[in-house]
Every structure is written in structure tokens, then in C-alpha cells.
């Protein structure tokens, strides 16, 4: 059992998973996103290598309209 916080919301997972698997789980694989994990930017090239740990704080951002 794994608990991580994504964009301020607690999320629970039964098994350990990579960031790439998380992105797919959230149906974000075709979106332009950026991820920050515990305050550090994770380059897209590392999504498959990085595995989520219990207590991780993730921020997943997109571009939106703004001035």
C-alpha cells in the first residue's frame, strides 16, 4: 500500500509503480505535462526509471490560457 499526494490530493496505490505507469493510469500519456516530485523537476526521459515512494509529493502541471 502506497500513499502519494498528487496536486494536493491523496492517492492510494496497491503496488509500487513508475512515474510512467502513473502518467498512464491518469490518462495523461498524450498530454504535454511536467512533473515535480518532492520539489524536484523530473525530466520526461526519467519517467520510466523513477518509482514512486510512499509519501511522495507530486505536482503535475499543464499549460492553460493566461495573460
Amino acid at each position: 500500500m502506497l500513499q502519494v499526494t498528487i496536486n494536493g490530493q491523496p492517492q492510494h496505490f496497491d503496488n509500487s509503480l513508475s512515474l510512467q505507469q502513473l502518467v498512464e493510469h491518469l490518462s495523461l500519456q498524450n498530454k504535454r505535462i511536467a512533473i515535480e516530485r518532492n520539489g524536484e523537476i523530473v525530466p520526461r526521459s526519467q519517467f520510466s526509471e523513477q518509482t514512486l515512494s510512499d509519501g511522495d509529493q507530486l505536482e503535475i502541471v499543464v499549460a492553460v490560457g493566461g495573460g
Binding site: L28, K31, I60, V64, G65
Partner: peptide, 17 residues
């Protein structure tokens, strides 16, 4: 453009800017 948190687990077909 602005940078904001994405919606989690909501409409995956939501158009992207």
C-alpha cells in the same frame, strides 16, 4: 500561457491549449 495543476482523473479528452 499560464502553468497550472492538471485535473486528476477527470475528462481525459479535455482539449489542451
Amino acid at each position: 500561457i499560464a502553468i497550472r495543476r492538471t485535473n486528476i482523473g477527470q475528462n481525459p479528452n479535455e482539449p489542451n491549449l
